[in-house]
Design a protein around this nucleic acid. Structure first.
Lengths: 195, 195
DNA sequence: TTAGTGTTTAACATTTTTGTTAAACAAAAG
DNA sequence: CTTTTGTTTAACAAAAATGTTAAACACTAA
């Protein structure tokens, strides 16, 4: 009878995600992942066969998460401003935990020059863009190409967390100070995008 | 007489920078760099002795460039708005060429957990922050923690270029379309940060 | 108890990446 | 022209990272 509690398998994957997405160590070796997980490196091969397969799984799940988050945003049927507030709250919460996830995905794409499998989001995005345009016509937000609005939004949410190590130094802040700043971001972003 | 035209040495360094900063291939091997430069890999060792020394030089020069850019911003004595406009123009121009430079620096810092040698900028930054605060009091820009203003500014400039590969897909754009969008960023950013 | 199943480990093997050596080459200096 | 100096290359060596094997282990079921 196959009991097969995938406890260790999950531990390895979670540790890899922590190293890549949270700590931003994009060059981590299988040995480093194994050490961080407190397991023998052979186990990593036992569960995933190869480093490549582990990487691919981590990558795929990151893509799925990003995509699911997009869907959640697009499909929430509330008022526009509520939708935006929810988006910011959800995104920031995850970005504080996993600031480098998008960076991991992007650099993997750059390194392997493989195609991005996200085409299916385009229709939903178009719907979102239309909605933004309506808000602009209604005078609720500043008029601009709605794609710039979306880029602004993601930039304002994502970048301060990615650049944390540099910013902490420039502003002379410790981890706690910086985290406190990050928790102010939701209000700041809303203030910034709402004329 | 030592002629020593450092043509090849420079070619190697420039190619490394292109691969890291422009193409975002952060895992590139010495062989890949040598191939891209069209030289024998041994030459890389002849000029730099080790992969580590090449990396360190590239890293140091990236830090110097970032720092020099900061200085340029801080020390330009013009009116605030002119200063900001110049900053955006200079930053975007470089970021279009080398979108991944900051990411390279950040991931190197994360991977080696070495200290950031930029402390000397803090005083100038404080001066800049004071200036921003004055502008806020004068009602020229929205009131907020000036550090958020700085973070917003850099986020709006840097992120859309870093996330280009994802955005092109989401918005269904080819390289030229996306570049055209990027050239609109200066105006968009000014509009966004000026209430 | 022991046969069976899945898990974990150490030892070993292979592959990939980096580093070194010695010799070929090219151009200028004597 | 031949010696010197710096550049480039191929062949080799070493190190680092990944992958495999076989045996030990732990737990359950017959």
């Amino acid at each position: 009878m196959s009991v097969r509690d995938n406890k260790t398998e999950q531990l390895i994957k979670d540790t890899a995600k922590r190293i890549f997405f949270a700590e931003g160590k994009l060059h981590a070796t299988t040995q480093e992942i194994a050490d961080a997980a407190g397991i023998n490196r052979t186990l990593l091969h036992y569960y995933f066969r190869s480093r490549d397969i582990l990487f691919k799984q981590v990558f795929e799940e990151a893509m799925l998460t990003i995509r699911a988050r997009m869907d959640e945003i697009f499909e929430s049927g509330e008022l526009f401003k509520e939708k935006i507030e929810k988006l910011i709250a959800v995104f920031l919460q995850e970005a504080i935990l996993y600031p480098y996830r998008e960076i991991f995905v992007i650099t993997e794409l750059n390194s392997n020059s493989k195609a991005v499998p996200m085409v299916s989001e385009q229709q939903k995005m178009q719907f979102f863009l239309n909605q933004i345009e309506e808000e602009m016509k209604a005078g609720n937000i500043k008029k601009m190409d709605p794609r710039h609005f979306v880029m602004n939004l993601f930039a304002l949410m994502a970048y301060p967390l990615i650049a944390a190590s540099l910013n902490k130094n420039i502003f002379n802040l410790n981890n706690d100070d910086y985290l406190a700043l990050m928790h102010e971001r939701k209000a700041v972003i809303l203030q910034t995008i709402y004329s």
